[in-house]
Amino acid sequence: EALLLQRRRVTVRKADAGGLGISIKGGRENKMPILISKIFKGLAADQTEALFVGDAILSVNGEDLSSATHDEAVQVLKKTGKEVVLEVKYMKD
């Protein structure tokens, strides 16, 4: 459990079709971090076996998301290339 509370760096390699394969919720306007709300089976994020629903995305390719709005986070995630480095931390409810 202590492991979950540490920052983790996960590299996601996207397939030619399909994006990261995650849905996010939260954002500055909700006074919440950007959280992974869904991981789609078989897509890139799922294949890492290292990302979990409830993980907060702290940064994407080094771009800090700690004070991002939901829309800003969506845009940052959309413009990523084939390889995406996510810094995440599991957030307890």
Rank of each mutant, 00 (worst) to 15 (best):
E1Q: 12
E1L: 07
A2D: 15
A2L: 12
L3D: 14
L3P: 09
L3V: 12
L4A: 07
L4M: 14
R7D: 06
R7K: 15
R7V: 13
R7W: 04
R7S: 10
R8K: 02
R8P: 01
R8I: 01
R9W: 10
R9A: 09
R9D: 03
R9M: 14
R9P: 04
V10L: 05
V10C: 04
V10R: 03
V10I: 13
V10Q: 02
V10E: 03
V10M: 04
T11Q: 06
T11W: 09
V12L: 10
R13T: 15
R13G: 06
R13D: 10
R13K: 14
R13E: 11
K14D: 10
A15Q: 15
A15T: 12
A15W: 09
A15Y: 14
A15K: 13
D16W: 09
D16N: 10
D16L: 11
D16K: 13
A17K: 14
A17H: 14
A17W: 11
A17S: 14
A17F: 12
G18M: 13
G18E: 10
G18S: 11
G18D: 13
G19D: 06
G19C: 05
L20C: 05
L20F: 07
L20S: 00
L20W: 06
L20Y: 04
L20K: 00
G21W: 05
G21H: 03
G21I: 02
G21P: 06
G21N: 02
G21K: 04
G21L: 03
I22Y: 02
I22T: 02
S23L: 13
S23V: 10
S23K: 10
S23G: 14
S23E: 12
S23R: 13
I24R: 02
I24K: 04
I24M: 05
I24Y: 00
I24G: 01
I24E: 03
I24C: 05
K25G: 11
K25H: 15
G26H: 00
G26Q: 00
G26M: 03
G26N: 02
G26W: 01
G26L: 00
G26P: 00
G26T: 01
G26Y: 03
G26F: 02
G27T: 00
G27S: 01
G27N: 04
G27W: 02
G27I: 00
G27F: 00
M32D: 06
M32C: 06
M32V: 12
M32R: 07
I34Y: 01
I34N: 03
I34F: 00
I34C: 05
I34K: 00
L35C: 08
I36P: 00
I36C: 00
I36R: 01
S37C: 12
S37E: 14
S37P: 00
S37D: 12
K38I: 04
K38H: 13
K38P: 01
K38T: 09
K38M: 06
I39H: 03
F40P: 08
G42D: 06
L43V: 05
A45S: 07
D46T: 05
D46E: 09
D46H: 09
Q47V: 09
Q47F: 07
T48E: 06
E49Y: 09
E49N: 15
E49S: 11
A50G: 13
A50P: 07
A50D: 09
L51D: 01
L51E: 02
L51T: 01
L51W: 02
L51Y: 02
F52I: 07
F52P: 02
F52Y: 14
F52S: 09
F52K: 12
F52H: 15
F52V: 09
V53M: 05
V53Y: 02
V53R: 04
G54M: 02
G54N: 11
D55C: 03
D55M: 01
D55E: 02
D55F: 00
A56F: 00
A56S: 08
A56V: 10
A56G: 06
I57N: 01
I57S: 02
I57G: 01
I57C: 02
I57K: 01
I57L: 09
L58P: 02
L58M: 12
L58G: 00
L58T: 05
L58W: 04
L58E: 07
L58I: 10
S59E: 15
S59I: 04
S59P: 02
V60R: 00
V60A: 09
V60M: 05
V60W: 02
V60N: 03
V60D: 04
V60H: 02
V60Y: 02
V60L: 05
N61S: 05
N61A: 04
N61H: 03
G62M: 03
G62P: 00
G62F: 03
G62T: 05
E63L: 14
E63F: 13
E63D: 09
D64K: 05
D64H: 04
D64M: 05
L65D: 00
L65C: 07
S66H: 08
S66N: 09
S66G: 09
S66E: 10
S67T: 15
A68I: 06
A68D: 00
A68G: 05
A68C: 13
T69V: 03
T69Y: 06
T69F: 06
T69I: 01
T69Q: 04
T69A: 06
T69E: 05
D71I: 07
E72A: 08
E72G: 05
V74G: 05
V74D: 08
V76F: 08
V76A: 15
V76I: 15
L77F: 06
G81D: 09
V85D: 15
V85I: 15
E87Q: 08
E87T: 08
V88W: 02
V88M: 00
V88G: 02
K89H: 11
K89N: 07
K89Q: 11
K89L: 11
Y90L: 10
Y90N: 10
Y90E: 07
M91P: 06
M91E: 08
M91W: 09
K92I: 15
K92E: 15
K92F: 12
K92W: 11
D93I: 10
D93Y: 09
D93F: 09
D93V: 07
D93A: 09
D93E: 15
D93N: 08
